[in-house]
Design a protein around this nucleic acid. Structure first.
Length: 583
DNA sequence: GCCGTTTTCGGCCCGACTGTTTTCAGTCG
């Protein structure tokens, strides 16, 4: 979406990525390309941190950043660009990067096709392939040409990636159907689904069995299978009725841990782990961990023993992104990640008073079923007419109802009286301070003006945060995964203000939001900003979305102490009332 | 380009598959 500008940190990431990709197309040695990619990854999670530094020595403390890249980062900081990158752009058109998105086409052939045929874009590539001009090139043939065409078609037909929530549901359906046919089957998701990434490309499943053919037979004959793409002895791929690709692999039980480790990834994590193994005279692949000198097998049955054989504790799948977990696992100092059982309540829920479908009692009952101790009722405030925002009088009545319900003392769940207020164009809120002073939890969020410039949006949010009653900023970037990009907001400034004013930022756990996302959560954690998990439930079942909130929190390395949700109701209320007039 | 209680030079992750070769490069996960 046009107007959005990138933050300086994001621009650095893009510059380093372009450096990597253009170098790759140009044919630089792979190791140099890898070094740029690695630096881009470091910048992705800690870009602002890097740009705050002022000398090469400090920058070089980050593993993966050496003299050359440190100088480039400083150059970028001071001039806004990197001369090496500008030189590369002279030699290699930057549009060629888009060709690397085509499956079955990598940097070598992209360069060849550009040099020989002048092809720069996917459209030109398709035309060249259809005219059979690719097959004439040295090193390519008719097969390669049709594979590239197939790749372009695939790219155009698949609208993109699935939401984690959707992929998770499909995976559970498949696993349950297989277990019905093969009782006691050992089956696990692998890949990005097991790492609980916010979107999933295809579903990878792993099975441990001594009878792979029975598993293959059961898998390929599932009702939800539309088409079998390939069926081998230990690996099959199918397309489901919904058009989603599912890969299933079967390994021997003694290899299950190694295979799970291997197929869970991420790629970057595995590369790093294999480096560790190699330096230690060992080798790791999908079949096990081996000692190089005599090929002796050291581990393989469980992931724990696979990592232990390399002197590591087993990092939870959610953090296997090579963002420092490998080093931490070697030191035996992995963070204590939040778990579902640590969550004592939900901090964002709607009832039928605004645009939800269930009343206070029904929502409270759903919270009881989850073993919660509190539930924040945060219906929309007066200003948000489209969502049935509550007029002041209706809100006051709801607060009364909530107080009465709590006084009855017949539920383990304490209801918190709250509101989700809209931040208007000038940072103002729907109700007066006298009304806010009656609420336990004041949540604010942006619901309009998504196209405003960075400074305006940032100022709106920061102005709202300066109201001492305001304790939580909901869905801080406003993105809808796959539908709407984040609005242009300076999150660094918002996080700084959150720390200063003791305001929590939300991790909205609704499946298409997951806002803040993993990388931003890591930034918030580094700054000591508190996070509030809320499902934004509009019906009782939505409270279950907490699963995805917790998973995302884990991907952001959050511990129970980083979350308001791990507090007991009395501790939470103390936090929510701290520093407010009338408290 | 990065990195080093086995190295300041010579390494740098692993295996499978495919298609195009004449022994292997490119791509993928």
């Amino acid at each position: 979406m046009g107007g959005r500008t990138l933050g300086k940190g994001e621009e650095l990431v893009r510059a380093l990525e372009e450096l990597a990709e253009l170098s790759e197309i140009k044919g630089e040695v792979r190791f140099k390309v890898n070094a740029y990619h690695k630096a881009a990854e470091i910048a992705r999670s800690r870009g602002d941190e890097l740009l705050a530094l002022d000398d090469v020595k400090e920058l070089r403390k980050y593993p993966g950043i050496g003299e050359g890249i440190a100088k480039k980062i400083l150059e970028f900081k001071h001039t806004g660009t990197i001369s090496k990158l500008e030189e590369l752009k002279e030699e290699v058109p930057v549009e060629l990067i888009s060709l690397l998105q085509v499956p079955n086409l990598g940097p070598k052939r992209a360069k060849l096709i550009y040099d020989e045929l002048g092809v720069r874009t996917v459209e030109e590539l398709q035309a060249a392939a259809e005219a059979h001009r690719l097959a004439e090139l040295h090193g390519l043939g008719p097969k390669a040409e049709s594979n590239i065409l197939e790749g372009i078609r695939h790219m155009q037909s698949t609208s993109g990636r699935l939401l984690l929530h959707t992929a998770h549901r499909i995976q559970e359906g498949i696993a349950n159907s297989l277990r019905e046919r093969l009782p006691g089957l050992e089956i696990s998701p692998a890949g990005s689904l097991r790492r609980m990434k916010e979107t999933i490309g295809d579903i990878d499943l792993l099975v441990a069995s001594r009878d792979p053919s029975a598993v293959m037979e059961a898998f390929c004959s599932l009702e939800m299978v539309e088409k079998v793409l390939l069926r081998g002895d230990t690996k099959s791929s199918v397309v489901t009725l919904g058009g989603l690709q599912v890969d299933l692999r079967v390994v021997k039980p003694e290899e299950y841990g190694a295979a799970l480790q291997y197929f869970t990834g991420s790629q970057a994590h595995n590369v790093h782990v294999r480096e560790i193994a190699k330096k230690d005279g060992k080798k790791i692949n999908e079949y096990g961990v081996f000692r190089v000198k005599d090929d002796r097998r050291l581990a393989g049955a469980t992931e724990e023993e696979v990592y232990a054989a390399l002197g590591m504790v087993c990092p939870p799948p959610e953090i296997r992104e090579d963002r420092g977990e490998v080093e931490a696992a070697l030191r035996g100092e992995l963070p204590e990640l939040v778990e579902r059982k640590d969550i004592r309540g939900d901090l964002h829920a709607h009832t039928d008073a605004s645009d939800g479908v269930a009343d206070l009692l029904e929502m409270r009952k759903a919270a009881e079923k989850l073993g919660y101790r509190f539930l924040a009722v945060t219906d929309h405030a007066a200003g948000l007419k489209v969502a049935g925002g509550l007029p002041k009088e209706r809100l006051l009545r709801q607060v009364e109802e909530i107080r009465k319900l709590n006084e009855r003392g017949d539920s383990p769940v304490v209801l918190l009286a709250g509101s989700e207020l809209n931040i208007d164009n000038r940072g103002g809120l729907d109700y007066d301070d006298e009304v806010l002073a009656l609420l336990d939890v004041v949540v604010v969020s942006v619901h309009a003006g998504f196209k405003q410039d960075r400074e305006t949006v940032t100022r709106r949010v920061i102005t709202a945060m300066r109201n001492p009653h305001v304790k939580i900023v909901a869905h801080p970037t406003g993105r809808l995964i796959g539908q709407r990009p984040p609005y242009d907001i300076d999150l660094g400034a918002v996080m700084e203000e959150a720390r200063r004013t003791d305001t929590a930022l939300e991790l909205n756990s609704f499946p298409d939001r997951l806002d803040l996302g993993d990388e931003n959560l890591m930034r918030a954690r580094a700054l000591g900003v508190k996070i509030a998990l809320g499902t934004d439930a509009h019906r009782p079942e939505h409270l279950d979305f907490m699963l995805f909130g917790v998973a995302t929190a884990r991907r952001g390395w959050l511990s129970p102490s980083d979350l308001l949700n791990a507090l007991e109701p009395d501790e939470l209320l103390r936090w929510l009332w701290r520093g407010r007039p009338g408290a």
